[in-house]
Structure formats: structure tokens, C-alpha cells
Amino acid sequence: MSESWYYKWRDRPPTGREQQRQQLASGIEEIFTESGATYGSPKIFVPLDRRGWRIPVNTVAKLKAELGLVAQVDQTVQEPGRLRDRVLGRPHRGAGCLGRTPQFEGIDDSQGLRHSHALASQGHFRA
């Protein structure tokens, strides 16, 4: 590439696509800031779509990364299992733990287990 061509390219005004991408980047920054820096690209995509932007979620993710926007995790949100255990008054025992708790000691769940095994044999639950 010749030196004159390089300077012609470098000093040219921004193209339509570059202007559009800059507007999109400012929209992403605006939505991210309004969310308190908690939204990831899927949640940023929805308001952009409502504003008329017809772009893929991956483009939002790419621009968000280029801008250096990283969502902050809200530490007050708990996993659904832990919340369910807390509401039911059970101590959290970890995922998949079948241990018994004193509150539920006399409860017979054999019918429920039998029913779930019947459903599983009919193909309702798949691994």
C-alpha cells in the first residue's frame, strides 16, 4: 500500500457502518450504566431490540467486550435451591443431597417416588 493511500484512508471521515457501530456502542454503554453495571449481553439485547436495533446477541457481546464492560454479580441473589430450602426451613445440604432432616422425619414419600419412577419409565424424564 502506498503512503499516500494510507493517509487518504486514515484521514477520511467515518463510514456509515462505523457511525452506526458507534451509535450502537453508545446505546450498549447507556443500557449497561442504567442497569447499575449488572446486565450481560442477553439483557442488553432486549432494550436494543425494542429501540429498533436488529442485531444478533453475539454482536452485543462482542461490542460489550470491546468496550470493557463487565457485569457485576449481585451477591444478594441466591441459588434457587438454597432459597427453597430457606423458605421451607431446611438446612441447605448441597445439590443432589438426599439426606433426611428432622422436620420431615415421618413423612412417607413412597407414593411420590413410585409416581416419578413410573413417569421416568414412560420417558418423561430424560438425562
Rank of each mutant, 00 (worst) to 15 (best):
P91C: 09
R12E: 07
Q75E: 15
R93Y: 10
L24A: 10
K62E: 00
V77G: 04
P56F: 04
D74L: 14
R17V: 01
F45Y: 13
A71T: 04
R10Q: 15
P13N: 01
E66S: 11
Q20S: 09
W5C: 14
S41W: 05
T38P: 11
V70A: 11
I44M: 03
R54Y: 11
T38N: 08
S26W: 05
V46Q: 03
L48S: 06
G89V: 15
T59E: 08
R54V: 11
G36L: 02
I31G: 02
Q19R: 13
Q72T: 13
F45T: 01
V70H: 08
G68C: 14
A71Y: 12
V73P: 08
P42Q: 04
R82S: 05
I31D: 01
Q20A: 07
R51T: 00
S26T: 14
T76K: 12
P13A: 08
P47W: 02
Q75Y: 06
R12W: 10
G36P: 00
Q23W: 05
H92M: 09
A61P: 07
P42H: 00
T59N: 03
L88R: 15
Q78E: 14
R90A: 09
A61T: 09
E18I: 02
Y39K: 09
I55T: 07
R54C: 07
L63A: 01
E66I: 00
Q20N: 06
R12K: 15
E66N: 15
Y6E: 14
P47E: 01
L88D: 12
R12V: 09
T15Y: 05
Q22P: 01
V57L: 02
H92V: 13
Q19F: 01
W53M: 06
N58T: 15
I44Y: 03
R93V: 15
K43I: 03
E34F: 06
A71S: 15
S41L: 07
T59V: 11
E66A: 10
R51D: 00
P13S: 11
E34R: 04
L67K: 07
R51C: 03
P14Y: 14
E79H: 13
Q22I: 06
V70L: 11
G68K: 12
G40K: 02
E30C: 05
R54P: 01
D85H: 09
A65S: 11
K8D: 06
T38V: 15
R82L: 09
Q23K: 14
G16P: 01
Q20E: 14
V73Y: 13
H92T: 14
R12L: 10
Y39Q: 04
R82D: 00
T76R: 14
A37W: 04
L63N: 04
P80D: 06
R86E: 13
T33A: 08
G52V: 03
P47T: 02
R50G: 02
R86V: 12
E29A: 09
F32C: 12
R90Y: 09
Y39D: 07
E30Y: 03
G81I: 00
T33N: 05
E30I: 04
A25Q: 12
R90G: 06
E18Y: 03
V87I: 12
S41Q: 08
